[in-house]
């Protein structure tokens, strides 16, 4: 119990520190004092600083936090539902489904940050999740499921490539730069939309807490504990799709967080109880995303995430294994 509280405290502190760090770091030097002025008494502050804070840095920090939460919760839920430690929104092709939605929305003329893009990405993610769900009910073997998920991902990505190849040079450029993934593209006006989408996804997942904790042992076992398995599974997968879709719509396809952060949370909090794991993974995801988001704009986000994240995760897994706890 105390260990859990200490872990929560440390990770939360990390999130706060790096959130503040994101606000003060950037090409223009803005001191903490100027930032405080811009927040608490906008009349006295330099208009230039206020503009930088609210239009560039605040949305970027929020994007990192929301995307970190969304992707890690989505990954955790998928790993639990499919009972496979290798699952994640990217591995199962759900992020690709969201990308397809985004591509279609862009070609239809929506701008980035528009609710149309968010909706299209969510629909794309949900569609792929449906396909995965049908496949999962056919194949009890979960490695078949992973192969199928990868194949669906390839197929959908190919569709996206065919779609954007017909686009004009300008939208193609926008799409390609979006495809590298970044937290810097979120505008202040799009923050509420992103936040609401994440809250909806989280609500769907949190309402199925009993399912998430009982499903470890299989459908019949969960049913024997009074859990309405079919309904809850739909809720959780819908929530996971909305979360992955929202993160992809606003930040591009981000691969690493969804699969890795749940393991980090397992190792830190040493529990299978989702009452602890969901908030734990959320905080870890937000922290990792904030750290990665501090890298220079020119470096692709996915590259940074993997370079920081893979050594951390490998270290954690190896250390965990020494105590006899592997994947």
């Amino acid at each position: 119990m105390r260990r859990t509280a200490v872990c929560f405290g440390i990770v939360l502190l990390g999130v706060l520190v790096f959130f503040a760090w994101t606000l003060v770091s950037g090409p223009v030097d803005v001191s903490l004092r100027d930032l405080a002025l811009a927040v608490f008494s906008p009349d006295e502050a330099e208009p230039f600083h206020t503009k930088i804070l609210w239009e560039l840095r605040f949305p970027r920090a929020v994007a990192a936090v929301l995307a970190g939460i969304a992707l890690s919760v989505s990954g955790l839920c998928l790993q639990t539902v499919f009972r496979n430690p290798l699952c994640g929104p990217y591995v199962l092709g759900i992020s690709s489904g969201a990308s397809l939605g985004v591509a279609v929305a862009l070609l239809a003329g929506f701008g980035f940050g528009a609710l149309g893009v968010l909706g299209a990405a969510s629909v794309g993610a949900i569609l792929v999740t449906q396909i995965i769900l049908v496949l999962a009910s056919r194949f009890r073997n979960s490695s078949v499921l992973l192969v199928a998920g990868l194949l669906v991902g390839y197929f959908v990505n190919a569709l996206v490539n065919v779609l954007v190849s017909g686009a004009d040079a300008e939208s193609l450029q926008v799409y390609v730069s979006w495809g590298l993934g970044s937290f810097g593209r979120l505008t202040l006006g799009a923050v509420p939309g992103f936040a609401i989408a994440v809250l909806v996804g989280l609500a769907l997942v949190v309402c199925s807490m009993r399912y998430l904790n009982a499903i470890h042992m299989g459908d019949d076992f969960a049913r024997g504990l009074g859990v309405r398995v079919g309904l809850s599974r739909i809720c959780v997968l819908l929530g996971s799709s909305v979360l992955a879709g929202a993160a992809t719509a606003y930040c591009g396809p981000v691969a690493f967080i969804g699969i890795a952060v749940p393991h980090l949370a397992f190792m830190l909090f040493r529990t299978t109880n989702h009452r602890v794991l969901l908030p734990g993974a959320s905080l870890c995801g937000a922290l990792l995303a904030l750290v990665a988001g501090l890298s220079p704009v020119s470096v692709p986000l996915n590259a940074v995430l993997s370079i920081i994240g893979v050594p951390v995760i490998l270290y954690v897994l190896l250390r965990g294994n020494r105590n006899g706890r592997g994947l």
Partner: peptide, 13 residues
């Protein structure tokens, strides 16, 4: 503790 699932609320407390 899973045995108490039938008695826990929506948040599985």
């Amino acid at each position: 503790g899973l045995g108490r699932t039938p008695y826990s609320g929506i948040l599985d407390g």
